[in-house]
C-alpha cells in the first residue's frame, strides 16, 4: 500500500514538474529555432513508394 502511495506521489510530482517547466519555457524563453533557412535554394524533391 505504501509502495503504491509513493509511486503515485512521485508520478504526480514528475507531471507537475513537467507542466511547470513547460509553462516556464513558454513564458520566459525568447528565441526559437527558425523554420526559415534562406541559404537553401531551389530544392527539388521526388518521392516514390515501393511495396514489398
Amino acid at each position: 500500500m505504501i509502495f503504491v502511495l509513493i509511486s503515485v506521489i512521485l508520478t504526480i510530482f514528475g507531471i507537475c514538474l513537467a507542466i511547470c517547466a513547460s509553462l516556464l519555457k513558454k513564458s520566459n524563453d525568447h528565441g526559437e529555432t527558425s523554420d526559415d533557412c534562406p541559404s537553401i535554394r531551389h530544392m527539388n524533391i521526388v518521392s516514390s513508394e515501393r511495396r514489398r
Binding site: 509511486s7 512521485l10 510530482f13 514538474l17 513537467a18 520566459n28
Partner: peptide, 24 residues
Amino acid sequence: FLIGIPLISLGVGFGKLIQVTNRH
C-alpha cells in the same frame, strides 16, 4: 508498472527543467 511510471514522469519533469535552466 509502479516503478516505471514514476521514473518516466520524473525523467520528463526534470528533463524539461534542465532544458529551461540550460537555456537560462
